[in-house]
Design a protein around this nucleic acid. Structure first.
Length: 813
DNA sequence: GTAGGGTTAG
């Protein structure tokens, strides 16, 4: 086994709504595919981590080794302390020292700088305070080096307060003391205090010029809070002190300007040093410049600069290629991505970050198989990489793989982070795996991440998708902060579960809490309106959109087209469609669906032709819409034409939805055997809806014999199906086979099955009237039934056989 | 002997 590299990293504190300032230690091990946190203690919150112990850990120092082996030489002991600290084995470093003094050797000054660093590595203030006391006891606290080391130790342990307290009490401060404080504030995210400290330093040290360390930290703080004014001020200092060509400070300046979005000034700094033989050829300066362009979305400028860099013979390193891979992921440019991959292989640039970025690039650029392969073949693994692969699988249609990977991950690590929980919840959401997702919820609670805004949002979404709005609301109300995503998850949950009133209520509450809705919110709200089929709501939302969203947006407009159609106002749908400046596939699909739904079949066919003329590619959804409309309009020939065109002209393999439409089309038109044969040739396994459609057609055409065959297929797939048993019973009733009617109905009773009666409603003058079959509770029901009777007579007269539900529904009431 | 630049996941 070989330790490849080791470094410390910061657990992303923001995910937990708490600032985690302590730094765990991470070791990457070559060969065994695991990376494990070796030491990590999170002090400043209640969360306790069960950390997986690295089974491949470098053999540790054995207690008592010094005494038994008589390795007593002071300088040898000192170098052991140093070596262990450098390798990250802080406890061993400390043990060596403790053994040494326990054995009676005199405390020596030269141990301390390194020893204090080891205590810093433990990330445990209480232990850090022990060494502080120890130093006090032996009188080593007068030395400014020791004091500076202690300041650094406190910052590393996340105890900035202790560092500040000590710093303020220091009689004598040197440049390093100040720098430690400025960097300490900066690294723990307290950028304003870092800048304040920088200002104090300049003032209190009587105009003495700060060195590179202070300037770098100050510039980094300016960039992080996008404080251009102070950044420019520091730039001025640097020019005044002749430091503006220092290669470190040049990259610091460029980074600061880029983070502030001031590309012009970043370019000015870069242009000034470009021809400098030393700084102009500094790879980091180029990297910072390219990264700056990428983060400011100047993607082609970034790519140009990279090409120039290659032309000048400056060899890219891993940060360069990682940035370039991110760029490819944003451009969705697989071709360039593959070239970078080639470059990586040529330059042997393999580390965990390169591996992660490469994998991400393949996923984002539409080649998830290679992305997964990259992960499986990687030599390096860490939390980030695991998180990345699971998120990508969950988002790119591989939810089962995401769950499989999660299982493997848990065996290795034993604990997830918020990103991983988010990815797994998405997978469970996608697959509507309620019990599995609830296990994850339990885990999230155990880890203290359930109130995290991201995990919480995903939980709300998950429960919504699983149809459990009670739990979704419970999680939502337990969130400490609710962002747009969590509100959208709640509203979309209500909309999807047909709780349109609640969706609209949540939309109002959201605005009361001053959260600005986005396009996703509006699409969900409109979907709620269409479920209610209440026109006035639809209009209200449309007015809201006109007031608040002057610019048209595809997502929102498409939802509006569908919502108006579902509320019965096809003209408004058409107007919205006509006014769209740019129409995407979804816009065309929405208007086609609207036309089909309203029986405007010929207009729909014409619109489909226009869609093709506009060079938009029909997808599975388009054909489902077309076929479904053909089926309702009885247009068998047109249906066959589209079904074939789908396969021949657009190389779309029909899915179960399109087969269902075709079966429905043939069945309704009376070609029952043809429909049956079609089902038997379906390559994807037919579901109960395909068979159900044929059963309905059998009823319509009175084919009891085929109905029995079809029904058996359905009951094989779903033995508890009630609706289809009722349908079968009604079919027997139609054919006068009362014996069978009673058999099926007894069966339903015996099985304890109940059918939820369906209902219809209509909006008249802003009030909604609801009807169920055989219902006479409406105060105008006599008039209503008389009208139905009149209409049926009229239908019979023109040759239709009306299908009016008779009142015999008492057995399921 | 103390402080010390750039890159990855939702």
């Amino acid at each position: 086994m070989e330790i490849v590299w080791s470094h410390s990293f910061q657990l992303n504190g923001h995910c937990m709504n708490k600032k985690l300032e302590l730094v765990p230690y991470e070791v990457t091990v070559r060969n065994p595919k695991k990376t494990t946190l070796v030491s990590c203690s999170l002090q400043n919150n209640a969360t306790s981590f069960q950390l997986a112990k690295n089974p491949f850990e470098k053999s540790s120092y054995t207690h008592g080794f010094l005494t038994t082996k008589s390795v007593m030489d002071v300088s040898k002991v000192n170098s052991m302390v140093k070596e262990y600290t450098e390798d990250g084995f802080f406890e061993d470093a400390i043990r060596v020292y403790l053994d040494f003094i326990e054995y009676g050797f005199p405390v020596e000054f030269r141990f301390f700088p390194c020893l204090i660093k080891a205590y810093g590595g433990l990330c445990d203030v209480s232990k850090g305070k022990q060494i502080h006391g120890h130093l006090l006891k032996f009188g080593f606290l007068e030395d400014v080096y020791v004091k500076n080391s202690l300041l650094g130790m406190y910052w590393k342990c996340g105890a900035g307060g202790d560092a500040v307290e000590m710093f303020e009490r220091m009689q004598e401060r040197d440049l390093v003391s100040w720098n430690t404080m400025i960097s300490g504030f900066c690294q723990s995210g307290d950028y304003v205090k870092s800048l304040t400290m920088f200002g104090r330093m300049v003032k209190e040290r009587g105009g003495e010029c700060p060195n590179r360390v202070a300037y770098l930290a100050a510039l980094s703080s300016c960039g992080s809070i996008q404080c251009l004014t102070h950044g420019e001020e520091i730039h001025g200092f640097l020019v005044k002190n002749g430091l503006h060509s220092d290669e470190f400070l040049v990259s610091g300046l460029i980074e600061m300007y880029m983070k502030c979005g001031d590309i012009k000034n970043a370019e000015n700094v870069f242009e000034r040093i470009r021809d400098n033989d030393l700084v102009g050829r500094n790879r980091v300066v180029w990297n910072v410049m390219i990264l700056g362009y990428v983060s400011n979305e100047c993607l082609s400028l970034a790519l140009d600069l990279f090409v120039e860099m290659l032309e000048l013979g400056i060899t890219p390193d891993s940060p360069t290629v990682v940035t370039l891979l991110v760029l490819c992921s944003q451009l969705l440019d697989l071709a360039v991505g593959k070239q970078i991959h080639g470059l990586i292989l040529g330059l042997s640039l393999d580390d965990v970050r390169v591996g992660t970025a490469l994998m991400q690039m393949y996923f984002k650029c539409g080649d998830p198989e290679t992305g997964l392969q990259m992960f499986r073949r990687s030599q390096y693994y860490n939390l980030v990489m695991w998180g990345s692969v699971m998120s990508n699988c969950a988002q790119n249609g591989y939810p089962n793989e995401a769950l499989q990977l999660f299982g493997e991950f848990m065996l290795d690590y034993g604990f997830p982070d918020p990103v991983i929980l988010l990815a797994v919840l998405r997978a469970c959401s996608f697959l509507t795996l309620k019990p599995r997702g609830m296990e994850i919820h339990g885990l999230a609670i155990k880890m203290g991440f359930d109130s995290d805004v991201f995990v919480g949002g995903a939980l709300v979404d998950f429960y919504g998708k699983c149809g459990d709005m009670k739990y979704a609301q419970q999680v939502f109300h337990g969130l400490s902060t609710r962002d747009l995503v969590s509100w959208n998850a709640l509203i979309s949950g209500f909309a999807q579960n047909k709780c349109a009133d609640e969706a609209l209520m949540a939309f109002r509450d959201m605005q009361t809490e001053q959260i600005k809705p986005n396009t996703v919110t509006m699409a969900c709200v409109l979907s709620g309106c269409s479920h209610l089929s209440v026109m006035i709501l639809c209009k209200e939302v449309h007015c809201y959109l006109l007031r608040h969203w002057p610019e048209t947006n595809a997502l929102v407009s498409n939802s509006l087209i569908s919502a108006y159609a579902k509320c019965g106002d096809i003209h408004s749908s058409w107007t919205v469609f006509e006014k769209l400046p740019v129409r995407d596939e979804v816009s065309w699909n929405s208007i086609l669906l609207a036309l089909g739904m309203h029986g405007h079949t010929n207009e729909m066919f014409a619109t489909f032709e226009k869609m093709k003329e506009a060079n938009l590619k029909p997808d599975h959804g388009t054909f489902t819409t077309l076929l479904s409309a053909c089926s309702h309009a009885g247009k068998v020939d047109a249906g066959w034409k589209y079904f074939n065109s789908m396969m021949v002209d657009y190389t779309l393999e029909p899915r179960v939805e399109q087969y269902t439409c075709m079966v429905d089309l043939l069945g309704r038109a009376g070609y029952l055997n043809l429909a049956y044969d079609l089902i038997m040739t379906v390559p994807c396994s037919p579901d109960d809806r395909v068979w159900g459609s044929l059963l309905a057609s059998c009823k319509h055409h009175g084919d009891t014999k085929l109905a029995e065959v079809v029904a058996n297929h359905i009951f094989d797939l779903d033995p508890s199906s009630v609706g289809y048993r009722v349908l079968l019973a009604n079919l027997y009733e139609d054919s006068g086979n009362l014996k069978e009617v009673s058999r099926v109905r007894t069966e339903i009773k015996y099985m304890g099955l109940k059918k939820q009666p369906g209902c219809s409603w209509i909006e008249v003058d802003n009030s909604i009237h609801i009807f169920v079959a055989g219902d006479h509770s409406h105060d105008q029901s006599e008039d209503i039934y008389a009208t139905i009777e009149g209409l049926s007579l009229e239908m019979k007269r023109v040759g239709y056989i009306p299908q009016i539900q008779t009142a015999s529904n008492d057995y399921w009431a």
